[in-house]
Design a protein around this nucleic acid. Structure first.
Lengths: 116, 116
DNA sequence: TCGTTAAATAACGTAATGGTTAAATACATC
DNA sequence: GATGTATTTAACCATTACGTTATTTAACGA
């Protein structure tokens, strides 16, 4: 909704570690230690990434003994998708132009390819 | 495609000034000075935002006398949209649960609302 | 060639980001 | 209550990001 929310979501997504964490969470709830395993990174570093994701509302955390299982909350992604929709026509248009061009090149057969 | 491209696109989008610039460019090609007007920001600052957008492939620049008109290139946004699609089921599921909840609350009529 | 305009680059300051290790906290078990 | 395990917080460091003003480059027109 607000530009602020969109901003914190996009900022959270603009990091490969955090995107990987989200991908893992798409497979189901897990502990912090489990999330940290694939990364060559200290626990605290992962913990801070989780904090960013939580602040963006992309994950929620519960409590299970010493564990703090994390769960994906994809709702903020819907806002990003909505925002992107404004531009869909633009990228579809450019793909159409690309298709046109490829079709044209193909129809020219073996000639030297000269766009324009 | 590559995680790197997705990363530079998302990083470029994670700034309100740059998103506003894209929104302006969706209305058509413009000069740098024109783009800078709505912002309380120096020319060089805008110039650097444009550089980020260009590096991410979100804009292209041409030459018209002293002007360097910028044009939107939405293609990288398609990759973001593709990436997001992986999560659509998740956010739709959570909206479904929200709907269920709202329906339930409504069906309970005037009772005190107690989820769970 | 000189002056003007549009934009980019240089040089700089400051704040935010992303990582580290060491210490603190929360919970469970003995 | 002491010990072990999972996680967070504190303190710190290096790099990047974003802004500024001053200077430079590029293109035009008198």
């Amino acid at each position: 909704m607000t530009d602020d929310r969109l901003n914190s979501t996009l900022s959270a997504l603009a990091d490969p570690t955090r995107r990987a964490i989200l991908a893992r969470l798409a497979l189901g709830e897990t502990s912090v230690a489990e999330l940290a395993k694939p990364f060559d990174m200290s626990g605290p570093a992962v913990s801070r990434h989780l904090r960013v994701l939580e602040a963006a509302g992309l994950i929620t955390r519960s409590r299970d003994a010493q564990r703090r299982p994390c769960r994906l909350n994809a709702a903020p992604l819907a806002e990003v998708a909505d925002w992107l929709e404004r531009y869909r026509l633009f990228w579809e248009a450019s793909f159409d132009r690309l298709e046109d061009y490829l079709r044209e090149v193909q129809s020219r057969g073996g000639e030297r390819d000269k766009p324009r």
